[in-house]
Amino acid sequence: MSGQNKKTPDQEKYQQLEQKHETKRPVLKNCIRAFWVGGLFCVVGQALTYFYIYFFNFTEQTASNPTVATMIFIAMLLTGFGVYDRIGQFAGAGSAVPVTGFGNAVISAAIEHRTEGFVLGVGSNMFKLAGSVLLFGVFSAFIIALIKTILVYMGVI
């Protein structure tokens, strides 16, 4: 863990020089792209929700389950055909934040480690990107639920 806090004057000087040449992330452009590509994903999702409401026996409450499953299925196909990583490069957070991004993280890892076999390859590496999302998602949900329970018990809410 060396050198991350104390920089020598040389390092300081060089980093300033290097900064000058560094291509900056086009933050505004990325935001706009993320917004509309992410929005497009959501439009597809909403359309699917209505599809399930109209043609199957799902209510607004229950239609979200098959919708999520279908979206992940589409993400799986796009990942397998090598399209999703291109969308990801273009859209950034727009394709990473919706549930399809989660699906992509799981599926891409599964495809990647297929060559190492099903148990030690796919099985153990499938969640290497998404695993932390699961862990901290469940953990934070637990914390929030705990806080709410305490507040309700105390009569605040």
Binding site: E22, T23, K24, R25, P26, N30, T79, G80, G82, Y84, D85, R86, I87, G88, Q89, A91, G92, A93, S95, A96, G101, N104, A105, I107, S108, A109, I111, E112, H113, L129
Partner: peptide, 17 residues
């Protein structure tokens, strides 16, 4: 890529650097 970064098909955005 597999060893140093993310799976090939993972849709992460790479910075221009």
């Amino acid at each position: 890529e597999k060893q140093f970064r993310y799976p090939t098909e993972y849709g992460g955005q790479k910075p221009p650097t």
